[in-house]
Amino acid sequence: MGLLSIIKKVKQKEKEMRLLMVGLDNAGKTTIVKRINGEDITTISPTLGFNIKTMQFNGYRLNIWDVGGQKTLRSYWRNYYEQTDALLWVVDSADTRRLEDCRQELHSLLKEEKLAGASLLIFANKQDIAGALGTLDIEKALDLQAMGSRHWRIVGCSAVTGAGLLDGFEWVVADIRSRIFLLD
């Protein structure tokens, strides 16, 4: 068991991906990771730190860092950029009042050198709420066409119903794989 399990572990390590999930507070980040991980979502309180989920997905071991989005916490986001394979930016599509704030925070994040190679998935969350903007409107409001060569995609979703979440994770894992695990 000894040596074999060590070899297995090393191989597994190579198949690990690090995903950083950020966005304004109350965007639904924690609900998304709990939903994708099959946990209860009935009681969720503001994240005053991070929630990490380690799970298997499509043959890869994902480590998802969901870091709190309150204003006082945003200055700490920089501590989580290192070795991030993908950035998951979550938007409350019904919170039109804060879309400009959301755009500014996203674009300042994208200037970070340590995140230069990271895939970008934008979850336009809360699509189940009446009055939520669709993905095209969110794309415009967040000025996503200004992205340059970065691999990115926007996916409409609802963390409450689960709609769209798998599509998003499947795209992001496939995109990281195509960039990093070329030798597979």
Partner: peptide
Amino acid sequence: DFNFGFCIPNSTNTWEAVYPMP
């Protein structure tokens, strides 16, 4: 062997992991 990395002062943090059993 798991790296949590940086922890924010006065934070409450969680780590939920699914492991295959040997």
